[in-house]
Amino acid sequence: MPISVKIPTPLRKFTANKDTVEVQGATVGAALRDLDTRCPGLWAKVCDDDGKVRRFINVYAGDDDIRFLQGLETPVADGSDISIIPAIAGGC
């Protein structure tokens, strides 16, 4: 069963305007790599050159930010959801 990746509006230009893309992978990182093969350019939007999720992007596995799990090594089960969500942050 594939994994569903939810795509935020600003990144849908990489997905032919689809809000969800189904991918394969045992971890979040593998799923995002698979997403990049289907929708080239998305990986670079989500992760920096060091392979770390960009500060202004959040990747959720279910309800949890993967930063508080195992990062891109966080395992994902078939049929689960991954959400790419732009951060809402700022400061004075």
Partner: peptide, 12 residues
């Protein structure tokens, strides 16, 4: 004290 970060999942 000088920054905020919101739980974006609350929007969904």
């Amino acid at each position: 004290r000088t920054a905020y970060k919101l739980n974006e999942r609350l929007i969904a």
